[in-house]
Design a protein around this nucleic acid. Structure first.
Length: 273
DNA sequence: CCTATTTGACCATA
DNA sequence: TATGGTCAAATAGG
């Protein structure tokens, strides 16, 4: 069991190396690299399919000892990989679930400021079956914590909250895409922290793993922009990252061009290519 | 100590 | 009652 994990990790490292090589190699050799990546992907995929179901609930009786909910030998502990210093949002993983009919589990993340700032933003990350290097990200809700920090920067707020014990909050100092006209008091922002239409973003050729803390720089700023709030009706949008540019196959919300211009000039997506 | 992740349990809902 | 989203105890690691 432990051995299998090891093998999978080794294969993943190989796959990531091939990904990096793919960006360096040109011409006919590129095909060879693609073939290596494909082979490794298939090998990883076949080793990783291990559906896990919920165990039946244990009946609690007075005679039972301490509730041993975890099996020490069950799974390995994955390391946090933090990249992309441009990102100002920090997510915290709060769940993982095997989904019926899907090979890979779905991972659930929330904003680290959920409790201290009542930020309701969450995301779900799903690894694609065809290409394990590709992840589908479903964003639910929007970050309201941005409004708080903008408020802190621009004026003396009546709200004094000490974040000295919260390293995540201390990192949240700049919001390059914030709209200063939308700065409001915390009270009003908390009041309108309702769930807004979700979006699906697909990352291609990313070497980032969706485990643990993971930074996604742009979509959340996009989610907090006022133009999104005015949209009605929910729709899924597929966003492909292709050679450093974004390719939108469908976009149901107004004022998208303005958003696209902003992010294309930011260069923030370069980290994903 | 502390915070973050893991993962079985819990629970809403279709 | 099966599915999938969330909770939280156990655990890792600083």
């Amino acid at each position: 069991m432990e051995n299998l994990e090891e093998v999978i990790n080794v294969l993943k490292r190989g796959h990531n190396s091939a990904l990096q090589l793919d960006t360096l190699v040109q011409g006919g050799n590129a095909l060879l690299v693609q073939e290596i990546m494909c082979s490794l992907s298939k090998a990883i995929a076949s080793l990783e399919k291990a559906p896990v179901k919920d165990k039946k609930r244990k009946l609690q009786t007075a005679k039972q000892g301490a509730d041993k909910r975890r099996n020490i030998d069950a799974k390995s502990y994955t390391k946090v990989v933090r990249e992309n210093p441009e990102d100002t949002y920090i997510w915290r993983k709060y769940g993982q679930k095997e989904i019926q009919g899907l090979k890979y589990p779905r991972c659930y993340y929330r904003c680290t400021n959920k409790f201290d700032l009542n930020c309701q933003a969450t995301k779900q990350v799903q690894q694609c079956e065809e290409d394990p290097s590709k992840y589908e990200i479903l964003y639910i809700g929007r970050h309201t914590c941005t409004e708080f920090y903008n408020n802190q920067e621009t004026e003396n707020s009546a709200f004094v909250i000490d974040f000295s014990s919260n390293p995540a909050a201390r990192n949240l100092q700049s919001f390059p895409f914030s709209d200063t006209s939308s700065v409001k008091s915390i009270e009003s922002e908390v009041a309108q922290a309702e769930v807004v239409p979700s979006k699906i973003m697909t990352l291609q050729n990313t070497t980032k793993l969706p485990d643990s803390t993971w930074h996604v720089p742009l979509m959340d700023d996009y989610m907090t922009s006022p133009s999104i709030q005015s949209s009605s009706g929910s729709a899924a949008t597929t966003v492909d990252i292709d050679e450093g540019f974004l390719r939108f196959d469908e976009y149901p919300i107004d004022q998208f061009d303005q958003f696209l211009t902003t992010i294309n000039t930011s260069g923030i997506w370069n980290d994903f290519t």
